[in-house]
């Protein structure tokens, strides 16, 4: 499984590259996004799911209120401290510039392991259960109208869902959604009708 929602936010180039090079050696880590300042990070976080955010205590202190909502806060963030100077706590794990290699890797790995997504599920783009049902029906060839009938929704609501899905996944076409549904185990190849999608 490739984790693509991994973010390193640090002002210092050296620090950022150091953390990134460690992360890149961990299994299943593919793309690490880097940010050196808050505005870009905030924008990114609002629109994407994240697997892990490694953030310096200085950026974290500045950003605390805007960036984090309670549920997300605990399980997906590591704060990077320096010389153990920062004690801002609130139960969020920290790594320190003085920590040894093993400790750093173990802490980050523990966080990654703690929230294992389903097989092949792309955590960056997770759909709600309702959205998944709609993707499933779309893949099986249902029209928006049929979906509305099946789920007791208005056609308008179905269209809104589909727009949101398109936005989350960057996929709008039926065939694109079908392939998405297969590789995310929402439907199986066998369930598909043999008619062209």
């Amino acid at each position: 499984m490739n984790r693509t929602g991994i973010i390193v936010a640090a002002e210092s180039y050296l620090l950022r590259k150091g953390v990134v090079s460690i992360l890149n050696r961990m299994p299943g880590v593919s793309v690490v996004r880097e940010f050196e300042a808050l505005p870009a990070l905030e924008k990114f976080i609002q629109t994407r799911k994240r697997d892990l955010l490694v953030i310096t205590y200085t950026l974290f202190d500045q950003s605390f209120k805007q960036l984090f909502n309670e549920g997300d806060l605990q399980d997906r963030t590591i704060i990077l401290t320096h010389k153990r100077e920062w004690q801002g706590g609130s139960g969020i794990p920290t790594i320190d510039s003085d920590d040894g290699k093993g400790l750093i890797i173990n802490k980050m790995q523990a966080l990654l392991d703690a929230q294992v997504p389903g097989p092949d599920e792309d955590p960056l783009l997770t759909l709600s259960p309702r959205e998944k049902t709609i993707v499933r029906l779309v893949s099986l060839g249902y029209t928006n109208k049929q979906i509305a009938g099946e789920l007791f929704l208005s056609a308008h609501t179905v269209i809104t869902h589909r727009k949101n899905i398109g936005h989350k996944l960057g996929i709008k076409s039926v065939s694109g959604l079908t392939v998405y549904a297969i590789v995310n185990n929402i439907i199986t190849l066998e369930e598909l009708s043999s008619n062209p999608v």
Binding site: S173, S175, G176, T178, V179, I182, S193, S194, P196, V197
Partner: peptide
């Protein structure tokens, strides 16, 4: 299978359009 061929070709055509 025909089903797989349809899936792939439909997918790629749509992708190209997008």
């Amino acid at each position: 299978s025909q089903k797989e061929v349809n899936l792939l070709s439909g997918f790629f055509d749509d992708y190209k359009k997008e």
